[in-house]
Amino acid sequence: MDPHLNDLKQLNSLDPARGREPTAVEWTRSRAMLERVISGRAPQPSPSRPVRRRLVVGVAVAAAGAVAAVTVPSLLPGTAEKAFASWTAAPGSLTGEQVLPQARACAGNGRGGPSTAGPADVLLAEQRGLATLLIMKKDSGVIDLCLSAGPGSDDQLASMSLADGPLPAPPADTVTLETMASVGEGDGRWSDIVGLAGTGVTRVDVRPDGGKSFQASVRNGWWAAWWPGPEGGEADTLTVTVHTATGTTDHRVVDLD
Protein backbone atom coordinates (compact mmCIF):
# COMPACT_ATOMS: atom_id res chain seq x y z
CA MET A 1 0.00 0.00 0.00
CA ASP A 2 1.19 3.51 -0.71
CA PRO A 3 2.62 4.75 2.62
CA HIS A 4 1.04 8.15 1.99
CA LEU A 5 -2.44 6.70 2.00
CA ASN A 6 -2.97 7.35 5.69
CA ASP A 7 -6.73 7.24 5.43
CA LEU A 8 -6.54 3.69 4.10
CA LYS A 9 -4.02 2.75 6.76
CA GLN A 10 -6.36 4.07 9.43
CA LEU A 11 -9.27 2.22 7.91
CA ASN A 12 -7.37 -0.99 8.50
CA SER A 13 -8.10 -0.60 12.22
CA LEU A 14 -11.77 -1.21 11.41
CA ASP A 15 -11.13 -4.43 9.50
CA PRO A 16 -13.63 -7.05 10.78
CA ALA A 17 -11.23 -9.86 9.91
CA ARG A 18 -8.10 -8.25 11.31
CA GLY A 19 -5.93 -10.87 12.91
CA ARG A 20 -8.31 -13.64 11.94
CA GLU A 21 -6.53 -16.92 11.26
CA PRO A 22 -8.18 -20.22 10.37
CA THR A 23 -8.54 -22.52 13.35
CA ALA A 24 -6.98 -25.99 13.32
CA VAL A 25 -10.43 -27.45 12.73
CA GLU A 26 -11.04 -25.15 9.78
CA TRP A 27 -7.68 -26.11 8.27
CA THR A 28 -8.53 -29.79 8.69
CA ARG A 29 -11.96 -29.39 7.07
CA SER A 30 -10.56 -27.33 4.22
CA ARG A 31 -7.72 -29.77 3.51
CA ALA A 32 -10.18 -32.66 3.52
CA MET A 33 -12.35 -30.76 1.04
CA LEU A 34 -9.27 -30.16 -1.10
CA GLU A 35 -8.46 -33.88 -1.25
CA ARG A 36 -12.06 -34.62 -2.26
CA VAL A 37 -11.76 -32.06 -5.05
CA ILE A 38 -8.45 -33.50 -6.26
CA SER A 39 -9.79 -37.04 -6.22
CA GLY A 40 -12.96 -36.00 -8.07
CA ARG A 41 -15.20 -36.84 -5.12
CA ALA A 42 -16.27 -33.27 -4.40
CA PRO A 43 -19.95 -32.50 -4.75
CA GLN A 44 -21.20 -29.84 -7.13
CA PRO A 45 -21.00 -26.35 -5.65
CA SER A 46 -24.05 -25.53 -3.60
CA PRO A 47 -26.63 -23.54 -5.50
CA SER A 48 -27.59 -20.14 -4.30
CA ARG A 49 -29.95 -20.49 -1.42
CA PRO A 50 -33.14 -18.50 -1.39
CA VAL A 51 -32.03 -16.54 1.64
CA ARG A 52 -34.77 -13.97 1.39
CA ARG A 53 -37.02 -15.89 -0.92
CA ARG A 54 -40.46 -14.43 -0.94
CA LEU A 55 -43.47 -14.92 -3.10
CA VAL A 56 -44.79 -11.74 -4.61
CA VAL A 57 -48.29 -12.99 -5.16
CA GLY A 58 -50.61 -10.77 -3.18
CA VAL A 59 -47.75 -9.17 -1.31
CA ALA A 60 -46.97 -5.49 -1.29
CA VAL A 61 -43.26 -5.84 -1.67
CA ALA A 62 -40.82 -3.51 0.05
CA ALA A 63 -41.07 0.24 0.08
CA ALA A 64 -41.60 2.42 -2.91
CA GLY A 65 -38.27 3.52 -4.28
CA ALA A 66 -36.37 0.61 -2.80
CA VAL A 67 -35.45 -0.40 -6.28
CA ALA A 68 -32.32 -2.29 -5.43
CA ALA A 69 -34.20 -4.69 -3.19
CA VAL A 70 -34.54 -8.09 -4.73
CA THR A 71 -37.54 -10.31 -4.46
CA VAL A 72 -35.82 -13.55 -5.20
CA PRO A 73 -37.86 -15.60 -7.61
CA SER A 74 -39.80 -18.54 -6.33
CA LEU A 75 -42.17 -21.00 -7.90
CA LEU A 76 -45.27 -22.27 -6.19
CA PRO A 77 -45.31 -26.01 -5.48
CA GLY A 78 -47.16 -27.77 -8.26
CA THR A 79 -46.81 -24.85 -10.59
CA ALA A 80 -43.08 -25.47 -10.70
CA GLU A 81 -43.60 -29.03 -11.90
CA LYS A 82 -45.98 -27.86 -14.60
CA ALA A 83 -43.62 -25.11 -15.69
CA PHE A 84 -40.70 -27.55 -15.77
CA ALA A 85 -42.64 -30.16 -17.71
CA SER A 86 -43.63 -27.70 -20.40
CA TRP A 87 -40.25 -25.91 -20.59
CA THR A 88 -38.76 -25.59 -24.08
CA ALA A 89 -35.15 -25.01 -25.09
CA ALA A 90 -36.22 -22.53 -27.75
CA PRO A 91 -38.32 -19.61 -26.55
CA GLY A 92 -41.31 -18.19 -28.31
CA SER A 93 -41.05 -14.44 -28.78
CA LEU A 94 -43.98 -12.36 -27.56
CA THR A 95 -44.89 -8.76 -28.26
CA GLY A 96 -45.73 -6.22 -25.62
CA GLU A 97 -49.37 -6.40 -26.58
CA GLN A 98 -49.43 -10.19 -26.20
CA VAL A 99 -48.11 -10.00 -22.64
CA LEU A 100 -49.94 -6.88 -21.56
CA PRO A 101 -51.86 -8.71 -18.77
CA GLN A 102 -48.62 -10.16 -17.40
CA ALA A 103 -46.92 -6.78 -17.73
CA ARG A 104 -49.70 -5.10 -15.79
CA ALA A 105 -49.44 -7.73 -13.08
CA CYS A 106 -45.69 -7.17 -13.00
CA ALA A 107 -46.17 -3.40 -12.90
CA GLY A 108 -48.46 -3.75 -9.92
CA ASN A 109 -46.07 -5.69 -7.75
CA GLY A 110 -45.44 -2.62 -5.61
CA ARG A 111 -41.71 -2.29 -6.16
CA GLY A 112 -40.43 0.98 -7.60
CA GLY A 113 -43.71 2.76 -6.87
CA PRO A 114 -47.12 2.32 -8.43
CA SER A 115 -46.98 1.73 -12.14
CA THR A 116 -49.19 1.18 -15.12
CA ALA A 117 -48.00 -0.69 -18.18
CA GLY A 118 -48.35 -0.33 -21.91
CA PRO A 119 -47.00 -2.50 -24.71
CA ALA A 120 -44.02 -0.19 -25.19
CA ASP A 121 -42.93 -0.74 -21.60
CA VAL A 122 -42.16 -4.39 -22.32
CA LEU A 123 -38.50 -4.64 -23.27
CA LEU A 124 -38.36 -8.42 -23.70
CA ALA A 125 -40.97 -11.16 -23.45
CA GLU A 126 -40.67 -14.87 -24.09
CA GLN A 127 -42.74 -18.00 -23.66
CA ARG A 128 -41.38 -21.39 -22.67
CA GLY A 129 -44.30 -23.73 -22.29
CA LEU A 130 -46.44 -22.53 -19.44
CA ALA A 131 -44.17 -19.76 -18.24
CA THR A 132 -43.81 -16.22 -19.54
CA LEU A 133 -40.67 -14.27 -18.73
CA LEU A 134 -40.66 -10.55 -19.31
CA ILE A 135 -38.43 -7.56 -18.71
CA MET A 136 -40.23 -4.26 -18.44
CA LYS A 137 -39.63 -0.69 -17.45
CA LYS A 138 -41.94 0.85 -14.89
CA ASP A 139 -43.17 4.41 -14.48
CA SER A 140 -40.40 5.14 -12.01
CA GLY A 141 -37.75 4.00 -14.47
CA VAL A 142 -37.12 0.79 -12.54
CA ILE A 143 -36.54 -2.21 -14.77
CA ASP A 144 -38.08 -5.43 -13.49
CA LEU A 145 -37.88 -9.07 -14.47
CA CYS A 146 -41.10 -11.04 -13.97
CA LEU A 147 -42.00 -14.68 -14.48
CA SER A 148 -45.60 -15.78 -14.64
CA ALA A 149 -47.62 -18.86 -15.38
CA GLY A 150 -50.63 -17.04 -16.80
CA PRO A 151 -52.18 -13.66 -17.48
CA GLY A 152 -53.63 -12.88 -14.05
CA SER A 153 -51.99 -11.21 -11.08
CA ASP A 154 -52.41 -14.48 -9.20
CA ASP A 155 -50.35 -16.21 -11.87
CA GLN A 156 -47.29 -14.09 -11.27
CA LEU A 157 -44.64 -16.42 -9.92
CA ALA A 158 -41.56 -14.35 -9.37
CA SER A 159 -40.05 -10.94 -9.87
CA MET A 160 -36.74 -9.19 -9.45
CA SER A 161 -35.47 -5.65 -9.88
CA LEU A 162 -32.74 -5.46 -12.50
CA ALA A 163 -31.87 -1.76 -12.52
CA ASP A 164 -33.10 1.57 -11.26
CA GLY A 165 -32.97 3.11 -14.73
CA PRO A 166 -31.57 2.68 -18.24
CA LEU A 167 -28.18 1.00 -18.36
CA PRO A 168 -25.41 1.86 -20.82
CA ALA A 169 -25.38 -0.48 -23.80
CA PRO A 170 -22.35 -2.73 -24.14
CA PRO A 171 -20.21 -2.66 -27.32
CA ALA A 172 -22.08 -3.87 -30.41
CA ASP A 173 -20.97 -7.51 -30.56
CA THR A 174 -20.78 -8.20 -26.84
CA VAL A 175 -23.01 -9.08 -23.91
CA THR A 176 -22.86 -8.39 -20.20
CA LEU A 177 -24.15 -10.47 -17.32
CA GLU A 178 -26.46 -8.51 -15.03
CA THR A 179 -27.94 -11.25 -12.90
CA MET A 180 -27.82 -15.00 -12.51
CA ALA A 181 -29.25 -17.13 -9.74
CA SER A 182 -30.87 -20.43 -8.88
CA VAL A 183 -33.82 -20.95 -6.61
CA GLY A 184 -35.67 -23.91 -5.17
CA GLU A 185 -34.84 -27.24 -3.61
CA GLY A 186 -33.81 -30.59 -5.05
CA ASP A 187 -35.45 -31.44 -8.33
CA GLY A 188 -37.51 -28.26 -8.10
CA ARG A 189 -34.48 -26.03 -8.50
CA TRP A 190 -34.46 -23.61 -11.40
CA SER A 191 -32.17 -20.87 -12.70
CA ASP A 192 -32.36 -17.60 -14.52
CA ILE A 193 -29.79 -15.49 -16.32
CA VAL A 194 -30.13 -11.94 -17.63
CA GLY A 195 -27.75 -9.51 -19.31
CA LEU A 196 -27.41 -6.65 -21.73
CA ALA A 197 -26.79 -7.31 -25.41
CA GLY A 198 -25.02 -5.01 -27.86
CA THR A 199 -26.79 -3.97 -31.02
CA GLY A 200 -24.84 -6.47 -33.13
CA VAL A 201 -25.87 -9.52 -31.07
CA THR A 202 -28.34 -11.64 -33.02
CA ARG A 203 -28.69 -14.63 -30.69
CA VAL A 204 -27.42 -15.94 -27.37
CA ASP A 205 -27.20 -19.60 -26.37
CA VAL A 206 -26.56 -20.99 -22.90
CA ARG A 207 -25.03 -24.40 -22.20
CA PRO A 208 -24.69 -25.89 -18.72
CA ASP A 209 -21.60 -28.09 -18.34
CA GLY A 210 -22.59 -31.60 -19.29
CA GLY A 211 -25.98 -30.46 -20.53
CA LYS A 212 -27.62 -29.41 -23.74
CA SER A 213 -27.53 -25.91 -25.14
CA PHE A 214 -30.66 -23.80 -25.12
CA GLN A 215 -31.53 -20.47 -26.62
CA ALA A 216 -31.94 -17.24 -24.67
CA SER A 217 -34.20 -14.43 -25.82
CA VAL A 218 -32.62 -11.25 -27.19
CA ARG A 219 -34.56 -8.03 -27.60
CA ASN A 220 -34.23 -4.31 -27.00
CA GLY A 221 -30.70 -4.58 -25.70
CA TRP A 222 -31.43 -7.37 -23.21
CA TRP A 223 -30.92 -11.12 -23.24
CA ALA A 224 -32.56 -13.52 -20.79
CA ALA A 225 -33.50 -17.12 -20.14
CA TRP A 226 -34.71 -19.38 -17.37
CA TRP A 227 -34.39 -23.15 -17.14
CA PRO A 228 -34.91 -26.06 -14.75
CA GLY A 229 -31.61 -26.77 -13.01
CA PRO A 230 -29.13 -25.41 -10.45
CA GLU A 231 -26.41 -23.93 -12.66
CA GLY A 232 -27.46 -20.30 -12.26
CA GLY A 233 -26.37 -20.47 -8.64
CA GLU A 234 -22.96 -21.92 -9.39
CA ALA A 235 -19.88 -19.87 -10.05
CA ASP A 236 -18.62 -21.40 -13.24
CA THR A 237 -20.69 -24.14 -14.85
CA LEU A 238 -22.18 -22.29 -17.83
CA THR A 239 -20.97 -21.37 -21.29
CA VAL A 240 -22.63 -18.45 -23.05
CA THR A 241 -22.40 -18.37 -26.85
CA VAL A 242 -22.87 -14.99 -28.49
CA HIS A 243 -23.89 -14.90 -32.14
CA THR A 244 -23.32 -11.86 -34.34
CA ALA A 245 -23.31 -11.26 -38.09
CA THR A 246 -19.59 -11.95 -38.14
CA GLY A 247 -19.52 -15.20 -36.14
CA THR A 248 -19.91 -16.72 -32.70
CA THR A 249 -17.90 -16.43 -29.51
CA ASP A 250 -18.02 -18.63 -26.43
CA HIS A 251 -17.66 -17.18 -22.94
CA ARG A 252 -17.45 -18.90 -19.60
CA VAL A 253 -20.04 -17.17 -17.49
CA VAL A 254 -17.45 -16.39 -14.82
CA ASP A 255 -15.63 -14.24 -17.38
CA LEU A 256 -18.59 -12.10 -18.35
CA ASP A 257 -18.67 -8.59 -16.88
Partner: peptide, 18 residues
Protein backbone atom coordinates in the same frame (compact mmCIF):
# COMPACT_ATOMS: atom_id res chain seq x y z
CA UNK B 1 -24.81 -15.39 -6.29
CA UNK B 2 -25.76 -16.55 -2.85
CA UNK B 3 -26.64 -13.43 -1.00
CA UNK B 4 -27.90 -10.85 -3.40
CA UNK B 5 -29.70 -12.57 -6.20
CA UNK B 6 -26.61 -11.48 -8.05
CA UNK B 7 -27.18 -7.96 -9.15
CA UNK B 8 -23.79 -7.51 -10.66
CA UNK B 9 -23.91 -3.79 -10.90
CA UNK B 10 -24.27 -3.53 -7.18
CA UNK B 11 -21.18 -3.62 -5.08
CA UNK B 12 -20.66 -6.44 -2.65
CA UNK B 13 -20.80 -4.61 0.63
CA UNK B 14 -18.13 -4.90 3.27
CA UNK B 15 -18.89 -4.91 6.94
CA UNK B 16 -17.00 -3.21 9.69
CA UNK B 17 -15.57 -4.43 12.93
CA UNK B 18 -18.21 -4.16 15.64
Amino acid sequence: NRTRGLLRRRALDVRLTA
